[in-house]
């Protein structure tokens, strides 16, 4: 593992080196919120942002995308979508990096998801470590996702005196760092100071429940018949906002868009959908296998904390806090976990 030191003024130079090869997306203001979009002007960069509403993984798994083009008159012929231009994400928080790692595992395991692979392959990830939990709903300390450990090509670690540590996590990361003349290799003294600062920062991330992943998973599993699901979902609007902002939600529906004019091609598209929408599990317009809000909320939490744990060996929730932060009905994962962890358990 290689580490360098750079000053705050050198961030622009680092961004320029990355932009030479990749289309670079970075956190920027959007009204009162933040979002990842193409960085046109270095001044627009907000490297110290709380959290974006839409997670950066949406650049790899967008809300709506073309699966392939078709000619309605010649159904046998299909044009696939052009390879995406490789993109770089600059300033990804560790929780969102963990989200991308989960999507990688789900979409790049056989059968490989062609569209995701198309966008993800050749991409470049620059993570940035956080100084403190960003919102009240953050569970990154409980999920141990407040530190970036893998999946990044480069990792920016804030340091005192307007300085940053830069750590490489891949060959592509090494290459970029080597091309930046202004980087100074970290000395032993730098590393010692970095470790001290790191320890001080870590202390600001306090786990709320003190439950390790297998214990939480077992408690969630045991909560199937609890009243908490109907109690917690009582105010749910079935709007699907929690699904839309979740960095690991990936369910989709497939629709066609027919061409307006003859001779143009149509598009078979997929759009993200969510298990909290009322008609998500409707079959042939009749039977709804999760017709109650309580069943749908339970499915969402079970999917993250039980089904994905069985499949991936770790929680499907990265603790970013978005689902609660952006829920118009105020349904908070923190509250659900609080009840499940035994402190305020409501029993049937």
């Amino acid at each position: 593992m290689r580490e360098w030191v750079l000053s705050g003024d050198d961030l622009e130079g680092l961004i320029d080196s990355i932009s030479a090869e990749w289309d670079l997306y970075a956190p920027q203001r959007k009204g009162r919120l933040f979002e990842f979009r193409r960085l046109r002007d270095f001044e627009d960069l907000c490297i110290e942002y709380p959290l974006t509403m839409i997670p950066p993984s949406s650049l790899f798994a967008p809300g709506s995308e073309v699966l392939y083009h078709f000619d309605p008159d010649r159904p046998a012929e299909i044009e696939s979508v052009d390879p995406a231009r490789p993109i770089a994400l600059f300033g990804v928080h560790p929780c969102d990096l963990a989200g991308i790692a989960i999507l990688d595992e789900l979409h790049l395991s056989p059968p490989i998801d062609r569209c995701y692979a198309n966008r993800r392959s050749g991409s470049f990830l620059v993570a940035v470590e956080c100084a403190a939990p960003c919102v009240e709903e953050s569970l990154c300390a409980d999920k141990e996702t407040y530190r970036a450990r893998r999946t990044f090509d480069l990792l920016l670690i804030p340091s005192s005196g307007d300085r940053w540590f830069l750590r490489s996590g891949s060959e592509a990361g090494d290459d970029v760092a080597r091309s930046c003349r202004f980087l100074r290799p970290a000395t032993y003294e730098d590393r010692c100071r970095g470790d001290e600062e790191s320890a001080a920062r870590n202390a600001r991330f306090k786990a709320r429940f003190g439950l390790d992943a297998p214990t939480l998973s077992a408690r969630v599993e045991a909560s199937w018949d609890d009243l908490l699901w109907s109690a917690q979902s009582r105010l749910c609007l079935s709007c699907g906002a929690c699904n839309a902002v979740c960095p690991t939600c990936h369910c989709y529906a497939v629709d066609d868009v027919l061409p307006v004019k003859r001779g143009e091609s149509g598009e078979r598209r997929r759009r993200r959908t969510g298990c909290q929408l009322a008609d998500f599990a409707v079959v042939a317009g009749v039977e709804n296998f999760r017709g109650e809000k309580a069943f749908r909320l339970r499915h969402r939490i079970f999917k993250k904390e039980v089904y994905l744990v069985e499949r991936l060996g770790r929680s499907g929730c990265v603790g970013c806090g978005r689902c609660g932060h952006f829920c118009p009905a105020g349904i908070r994962l923190v509250e659900i976990f609080r009840q499940i962890s035994g402190e305020e358990k409501v029993d049937a």
Partner: peptide, 19 residues
Amino acid sequence: FERRMCCGLGKCGRCQING
């Protein structure tokens, strides 16, 4: 079992029963 399948590939999540 009848469930709503969109992809057939175990990806879209529509037909999921538990895990």
